[in-house]
Design a protein around this nucleic acid. Structure first.
Lengths: 208, 208
DNA sequence: GACGATACGGAACGGTGTTCCGGTTAGCAA
DNA sequence: TTGCTAACCGGAACACCGTTCCGTATCGTC
């Protein structure tokens, strides 16, 4: 969560360009802007004033515009950054918990990710070409992660083996929709239920 | 079209309030703002600068904000104003043309009205409570008008009598959707076709 | 350590929504 | 008709926002 993801988002974007290494201070600014923007977007929405973001990042306005000339560039970068953070959290979960438990925990994490993206949906469908590659990036990053979690849980006999990763992804996303305002822990409970449902058909039956 | 609709939009709004008569100059300003805003919205969209509207209306900014404290108030008022203008155009059409012809002409008028509302749809669904009563106002004003036109055309034997006003309203509105950018007179032709379809099943068959 | 390339910060600019208030006007009563 | 007052008008003024620009600071390298 709080680990700095230094990796650059290159998949899905226009590849083949030299991708020059950033200078150290430029990299620092970029990271600060990304995390600051993520917080601001979460609290004040994607239409939040630019100065709020630069202030929280401890950065000048010029710096923001050099790295993200368009607002949509920043939004897309934040989105990719958080997709990465969510996807990258899977391995450590898999190492710390049993397969089914890791799967459950990651889906909770994924649901949290989706919940914060509610405000973006309007922007995402604005037709700005900066967002065109986001859906495929979403798929490319999450499908292998979830597929691996499902596989190892199925191999361990802790869940059934006939679950399509995409179905589960969509189902989890949809589970977060009705929540909207009443955040009374409704979504986590529904996801827990969903995972229990997966466990139900496991070949090696074990009573939890 | 260019006739000043002095009537106040009272149906659908919170009724029961005193509805004090406006002073003459206030009424003038309100009307000027309404027609100016309608033009500006049509050309520059609903996000057009306030000053553009006040300039076209020949009015100060303070005047606009006194009559329409919120932008949504102005948008809703323009909408109601144009609904009224469109609905009120029916009687004169009915007086000037034969029943079926009047029906055709009014549907063309209605299609033109809908076409200019493309840009509003985003604002309309923004959840602002100022827009809550607009759909019912739309229905309340248009259904009787169209119902009357259909009735007299059916009674004259010029069109079939089994047409639901609501169906025709929705159909006409939908006909304007695909038009979007290519305004090569596509929509008017489709509506003419629709009306010819109505004529087809008329009891007293006459070859146009 | 020195030097060019690169990146930074924040003042400044143009544009926008909104408020405020001195001057004007409509409507009414004498 | 005249005079009075509440209601209304206009636009200057304010606050805020996105964006640009450029003198200064920092990085990476020789």
């Amino acid at each position: 969560m709080s680990e700095e993801t230094t990796r650059e988002a290159d998949a899905g974007a226009a590849e083949g360009q030299p991708r020059k290494r950033l200078r150290a201070d430029a990299q620092r600014s970029t990271d600060a802007l990304l995390t600051a923007a993520a917080e601001v977007f979460a609290t004040s929405g994607v239409d939040a004033p630019v100065r709020e973001i630069t202030a929280k990042a401890g950065v000048g306005a010029g710096t923001l515009y050099r790295h993200f000339p368009q607002r949509s560039d920043l939004i897309a970068a934040v989105f990719r950054h958080e997709v990465d953070a969510c996807a990258d959290s899977a391995p450590s979960l898999a190492a710390r918990y049993g397969p089914a438990e890791a799967l459950a925990k990651w889906l909770q994490r994924f649901a949290g990710f989706i919940a914060t993206k509610r405000g973006l949906s309007a922007a995402l469908h604005s037709g700005d070409p900066a967002y065109d590659t986001l859906p495929s990036y979403f798929q490319q990053r999450f499908m292998p992660v979830l597929g691996a979690l499902l596989d190892s849980a199925a191999k361990a006999g802790e869940i059934r083996s006939d679950v399509d990763p995409e179905d589960l992804l969509v189902a989890t996303r949809n589970l977060t929709l009705p929540a909207q305002e009443d955040d009374n822990g409704h979504t986590p409970r529904m996801i827990a239920l969903l995972v229990d449902g997966l466990r139900y058909g496991a070949p090696a039956r074990e009573t939890r």
